[in-house]
Computed example of a mutant assay.
Amino acid sequence: MAVNSTSGRRSCLVVLPSCKEGVSAQSFIQCFTLTHSAFTVQLATPGGKTPEFINQDDQSRRWLNDFRTKPFAVPLSLEIIDPNRYTSLVIPHAPGAAVDLANNKDLGHIILQFIRDKKLICAIGLGVAGLLSAQVEENSSWGLKTYSLTGKLLRLQFSRKKSIRSIGKRHTQLQSVVHVMSWKENRTAFGTGQLD
């Protein structure tokens, strides 16, 4: 069990893109606030770069400015993340996930380890594009292909986003993910339950 030795709390890894397309400020604030209340939260981005928060209003701008002064606001690089240290993984709604998370091998290795260990993986909105990185090297298959994924509005969100098309051949996989999510939304409450 991945428990922080100083606080006795479980650890949650929050993965964010580091590209200019960024992460939704509102989604990040909600994710961080909820996870931080129960977990020791660690942020991670490709290269450990500072994430770009988009769609900020006055309130979220003030919250983020205060957040940036905290030591836990500095992300680690995905390259150095040990998946065994975390009990859960969260990828908030982030248009940038299609740009620098969907093909990120380090994130892919982390997600595959989470799958093997049967740990909680939560991707929200366009953050789901980050799940495409979970490619099994031996047979080039997608690590989540036998899992059910849920989401009510994802098909509409993905069909409207031009940035999703930038991930090339994985766009077809992403359409399949959205289709499975749409098909399964009334059969599965949440998450990564195995398909029959």
Rank of each mutant, 00 (worst) to 15 (best):
R170W: 09
S11K: 13
I110K: 13
R160V: 02
N55I: 01
V90I: 11
R85E: 03
K105L: 03
K162Y: 03
Q157A: 15
F32L: 05
Q30D: 08
L126E: 07
M1Q: 08
S166H: 15
L149R: 08
D57W: 00
W183A: 14
G22V: 04
G151L: 05
N139R: 11
V14W: 01
K105S: 08
S163Q: 12
D100H: 06
C122P: 00
Q56C: 13
G193V: 11
G143I: 07
K70E: 15
S24V: 03
T33K: 09
H179D: 09
S7G: 01
Q194W: 12
A134Q: 07
A44T: 04
Y86E: 03
S5T: 14
F53D: 00
V14T: 06
V14N: 05
L16A: 08
E21G: 00
Q56N: 13
Y86C: 01
P17G: 02
S176D: 04
E79F: 05
S11N: 10
T35R: 14
P95F: 02
Q194N: 08
V180K: 15
P75L: 10
A73D: 12
D57Y: 02
L34M: 13
P71R: 02
K152V: 11
T45C: 09
I167M: 14
G130M: 07
Q42A: 05
K152R: 12
E79P: 00
Q135T: 09
S140N: 12
K119I: 07
G125S: 11
S159D: 07
Q194S: 04
T146S: 13
E52M: 14
C31M: 08
R160T: 12
L174V: 10
A25M: 02
V136G: 08
E185L: 06
L156D: 11
G8H: 10
K162D: 00
S18L: 03
L144D: 03
S88Y: 03
V15G: 00
L156I: 15
V14G: 07
L34W: 13
L126R: 14
G143Y: 09
T69P: 09
S5C: 11
D82A: 09
I81A: 09
K161Q: 05
L43Q: 07
M181I: 05
K161M: 04
S27Y: 00
G48H: 06
A102T: 06
G168C: 03
V90F: 07
V136M: 14
S24K: 04
D57S: 02
D100I: 00
F28K: 01
I29L: 10
L64Q: 10
K152C: 05
W183N: 13
Q56P: 04
Q113G: 01
M181D: 07
I81C: 11
S176F: 13
F190D: 06
Q42P: 04
S60E: 01
I111C: 13
A189M: 13
V3H: 07
D117N: 12
F32R: 01
A94E: 01
P95R: 11
I164M: 14
T50P: 01
F190Q: 13
T6E: 09
D196Y: 15
G143S: 06
L174D: 01
S11V: 11
V177I: 15
A25D: 03
H93Y: 02
A102I: 06
H93P: 01
Q175W: 10
I167C: 11
V136Q: 15
G168Y: 10
P92N: 06
S5E: 14
G22D: 02
V180Y: 15
V178E: 11
L107H: 11
V136H: 14
